[in-house]
Amino acid sequence: MELLAQQLITGIATGGIYACMALAVVMIYQAIHHLNFAQGEMAMFSTFIAWQMLAWGVPYWLVIPLTVVVSFAGGVAIERLVIRPLGDAPVLSHIVVFIGLFAIINSLAGFIWDFTIKPFPSPFGEGSQFGGLISNHQIGMIAVTMTVLVMLFLFFQYTRVGLAMRAAAENPASARLVGIRVGWMIALGWGMAAAIGAVAGILIAPIVFLEPNMMLSILLYGFAGAVLGGLTSPTGAVFGGFMVGIIENLAGTYIPEIGGELKLPIALFLIVTVLVFKPTGLFGRTVVQRV
């Protein structure tokens, strides 16, 4: 029973990270209808920026907001400089550009901070609560992801800009007609996705350790979460992310054949199964196409 509870909590904690990544993926997907394969690398780079600031002796409570702001600016810059000039290029060209971005960011991080694995301190310190049931870092992870998600929900539901962003994603032509600057809304979406990714990166780095390739598997779990919840639904993506975290941990613990080494194929299995049986995900809406 205690093992179950422990695994559930671990699942929820890592699930929060996947939820953040899934949300970042869905935000960009809604804005430009392409999957950002470089999302994980963007988050990894942000985490390195945070690590660098910590190494310079900047206090932790200042590092997180600074990293988020820098990442936001970076996300907007990537949209403006790289993605926007592509316009309506075919899907494959977009994929190649994302692959190019992936290579550039990965190689830059390796060049600046080299490819050795670095420990990353937890902002919440060591130690655990409730007799070792849950570590301080896990409590922090759950709290921070929850806060981020609630804030995003409030932003999209109750602010003017949030409404404009939703309108721009839903129907760009009509949104433009009522005076929304759709182009900047897309850039804003990229910035926010980068910022969410930065938070996810900082939270997961103490667990997986910091290195340029750390986010590839996390991104895959994020994709799995996004697909499970539905690529068209931010709420679904968040739910899907948590589900993937829980499924990953429980399957790894209770199915002996799976163990640690098979955890990643679970993501593949989940993605294919969900897509085959419910292609729109649990919360996505069906897109009706006119012939």
Binding site: V96, V97, I99, G100, L101, F102, A103, I104, S107, L108
Partner: peptide, 11 residues
């Protein structure tokens, strides 16, 4: 920076 150069050429 070979990876970055390769990515840049691709883009």
């Amino acid at each position: 920076l070979s990876g970055a150069v390769y990515g840049l050429i691709m883009i």
